[in-house]
Structures are given as structure tokens and as C-alpha cells.
Design a protein around this nucleic acid. Structure first.
Lengths: 153, 153
DNA sequence: GGCTCTATTTATAAGGT
DNA sequence: TACCTTATAAATAGAGC
């Protein structure tokens, strides 16, 4: 739905990809809301950008509850089916490969966490130095700092 | 997008509502897949009809992983939400308190990550030692181990 | 990075099988 | 209940700010 048809594959250009993400994210969340209202159903949408930023929609206030309910219903089935579907011994090689990738991912995330902790400590020092409230930065500045740290999570 | 414009409110006629649900559910899941591919992001969609039937999409095979990441985001934001929502100056003390708590939380998360890495390395060593596949534990046991480690992500 | 414009594609409301 | 058809509304790609 645009000036030309686009093939559904990863958009190579970084800027185009970001623009498409903004537009389509907005569209997806809107559609999630619409179906939940029109059809009176529970809907949960979670989007995590590759920079780790979170976007969500839920049709009620207890998304976590919906998702946990979902997990409790589906996980058991998945475990059963996994055992049934994956009796091939050679897939254990894939398992080992997956563990390597997980380790790499974890180390990257850990680095983010460490950076974030450093950032928080820095902010805290700034706050603790300013014991005179008259010199305190405006609340929205604080908000901005915290928002920044959140982006690393 | 149809013969006429529809207001976004619960569709009264049960049959129309069901028809709309089928169409829009299909559309929503399609769009979720498209954005995940085009924009290279993680997306999870969970739809629970009012009859309790479940429909889902996730951009990779580990919906659980996406949801866990979601929950860690929410926990972190909960701590800050009080500060963000309230512009009262005296709450800056709470802000500092929140930063301490956040640091504590992050350190706990980091510890989880470190424990997890250790666990993964341990698993990997076990895998590498077991070059004789005949001695490999049953696949479902491996699956169980991975599921456990995933819960920390 | 976000917003506007608009040509074009896509989704879908009604209606029918 | 679930699939066609088709007119129409809605989303959005690309371009410009």
C-alpha cells in the first residue's frame, strides 16, 4: 500500500527500515486495538526493536496475566510436541550451536546491563551532589535521564 | 476498508462480529509477520477469543523469550513510572531511591546472566565431551535444559 | 528522527455460494 | 462456518521538510 509494491524481506537500507518500522508499528498497534474493540477479544502485541526498545499493546490492563495464561496453556503442549517431533539425534548438533549463540547474546546483553549500571551510578552521583533542592534539575530533566537509561534495557 | 466505513466499537451482530474477527485476525497476524521480516524486529501477538480460543504469532520460535524480555522491561519501568508521572519536586528523593533500587535490580539481573552463562558453558562442555552420540541423553532432556536457561533471558 | 503529502497497494465490509 | 467477489476504506512507500 504505497507508491510501489514491496517484497516482504528484510529492508536493506537502514533508514528505510527505520521509517517502515515506525509506520508499520503504528499500523499494527492500531489494528490490534481495532480488532479487540470490534470483535470483543483479548489481544496482546509485543514488539522489541533490534535496539531493544519495547512497544506494546494490550486490550486490558493485565497483559502479563494474559501472557502467563497463554504460556501455561501452550508450553506444556510445546514440550510434549517437541519430544515427539524432534527425535533426530543429529539435531543435537543444532542444540550445541544454539548454546553458542545464546552465550554470545547473553554477553552482549550483559554488556548493556553493565553500561546501564554505570549510567545509573553516574546519574545517582549527580543527584547526590545536589543536596540543595533549589539547584535540582527540573523534573522533566530527570525523566529524560531515566528514559535514556531505559533505552538500554 | 470495505463497502462502507465502520465505527470502531463492539460489533453488535454476533455473526458479523465473528466474520470480522476471522478477517481481521488474519490481517493482524499477516501484518505482524510482515513488520518482523521487513524491519527485522521481534514481534509477538497473542489473541484470545471470548470463547477462549487462542491464536498467536511470534517472529521466532521462542515466544517465551520475547515475553520474558517484555516482562523485564515492564519491571524496570514500573520502578520509574512513579517518578515519570509525578512532577512534584519532593519526589526527587524518591527518584534517588528508585535509582538505588534499579541498580540493585540490574545487579540481580546481571547475576542471573552470569549464572546463565556459567550454566551454558557447563552444558557446552558436557556436549563437547559427549562426542559419542550413543551416550547422549534423550533429546527431551536437552530440550528441558535449554528451556530452563531460556527462562533467564 | 519525525511529520506531511499523495499515488498506489492492501485490507476488508457486504453480499453471495 | 468458511470461502469468493468487488466496491470502498485504510495503510503506507517514497519523496520532500
Amino acid at each position: 500500500m504505497g507508491r510501489r509494491k514491496v517484497e516482504i524481506k528484510r529492508i536493506q537500507d537502514k533508514n528505510c527500515r527505520q521509517v517502515a518500522f515506525c509506520k508499520r508499528r503504528k499500523g499494527l498497534l492500531k489494528k490490534a486495538k481495532e480488532i479487540s474493540v470490534l470483535c470483543d477479544v483479548d489481544v496482546a502485541v509485543v514488539i522489541i526493536s533490534n535496539r531493544g526498545r519495547l512497544h506494546e499493546f494490550s486490550s486490558n490492563n493485565s497483559l502479563t496475566e494474559i501472557l502467563q495464561r497463554y504460556e501455561s496453556h501452550v508450553e506444556a503442549e510445546k514440550e510434549n510436541s517437541a519430544v515427539i517431533q524432534v527425535p533426530e539425534t543429529h539435531l543435537l548438533l543444532e542444540s550445541a550451536k544454539g548454546l553458542h549463540e545464546k552465550e554470545k547474546l547473553l554477553q552482549e546483553e550483559k554488556k548493556h546491563l553493565e553500561d546501564n549500571i554505570a549510567s545509573i551510578k553516574k546519574n545517582r552521583e549527580v543527584n547526590e551532589m545536589s543536596t540543595d533542592f533549589a539547584d535540582f534539575p527540573a523534573p522533566h530533566i530527570i525523566c529524560g535521564q531515566q528514559r535514556m537509561t531505559l533505552n538500554f534495557l
